[in-house]
């Protein structure tokens, strides 16, 4: 009997430890406490299902996994942060919505199975967090694709494309893309080179939304935003080498 107990004790201890660590994270991620340290130190954090994060359950192409964040029923949002706990570069983007809706669509790179999360901060400093797990490998035929194989990126760097759709609820949905290699600096011999910021303006110069972007976003980023109203937009971007890009979305 005592022998059996001796066997069980470490197991029991392990069980208690892991429960304590993950208890306040509905996704039970081993990276959650590190994320709290990094992004939310000394702030109030509430896991809240109104912060909706959607992604496919598995990554068919680990260089480009789509994600969509939508927040319903939380007012006064100052910042919207998107990150993946277990990625080498966890932060993916940060949206300062200004007058835009707290909605953002994007594609990101995954290194291993990881939670994808969004956190919104309201004016009182509280963070509301939602998320979902993404497995790093898809079905049996999902060979890893060859990243940055596009030979003509230098000629096309910063080329923008886009389109807008007027939604039934009155919002203006836009999608736009920028040709950019989004190099992480983690591959040997290839320095970090990525889009860093994007701003969306009305034609009269009113700022609607600004985005900070990390190299964890997929090559040639394509973003989705929703804006109040309608009409022509100007989109400006800058990368970490100081290249500036701009386009008019009619």
């Amino acid at each position: 009997m005592p022998q059996r107990l001796r066997l069980l004790l470490p197991l029991l201890g392990l069980l208690i430890c892991t429960t304590a660590l993950a208890q306040d994270d509905p996704l039970r991620s081993p990276g959650w406490n590190i994320m709290v340290d990094r992004f939310f130190r000394d702030a109030t954090v509430i896991h809240d299902e109104r912060v909706q994060v959607s992604a496919p359950p598995g990554a068919e192409n680990s260089h480009s996994v789509p994600g969509l964040v939508r927040v319903e029923g939380i007012e006064d949002i100052q910042r919207l942060l998107v990150f993946a706990d277990l990625n080498p570069i966890p932060r993916i983007l940060e949206l300062t919505p200004t007058t835009a809706l707290p909605t953002v669509g994007f594609q990101f790179k995954v290194q291993q199975a990881t939670p994808l999360r969004a956190a919104v901060q309201t004016a009182d400093g509280t963070w509301y967090v939602g998320g979902t797990w993404v497995d790093a490998a898809g079905g049996g035929c999902s060979a890893p694709s060859i990243a940055s194989a596009n030979p003509d990126w230098q000629d096309r760097l910063g080329e923008m494309a886009g389109r807008q759709w007027q939604q039934q609820d009155g919002a203006q949905r836009i999608q736009f893309s920028v040709i950019h290699p989004m190099d992480t600096g983690l591959a040997p011999g290839i320095p970090e080179f990525h889009l860093e910021e994007i701003q969306v303006y009305r034609e009269d110069g009113t700022l609607l939304a600004s985005l900070e972007i990390e190299s964890s976003m997929a090559e040639n980023p394509r973003l989705l935003l929703e804006l109040p109203g309608e009409g022509t937009l100007r989109i400006h971007g800058r990368d970490n080498n100081g290249n500036r890009f701009a386009g008019v979305l009619r």
């Binding site: 080329e159 923008m160 494309a161 389109r163 394509r222 100007r234 701009a246 008019v248």
Partner: peptide, 10 residues
């Protein structure tokens, strides 16, 4: 991606 139109520079 094919649905997006090239954006002209301002």
């Amino acid at each position: 991606q094919a649905r997006l139109q090239p954006l002209e520079r301002p």
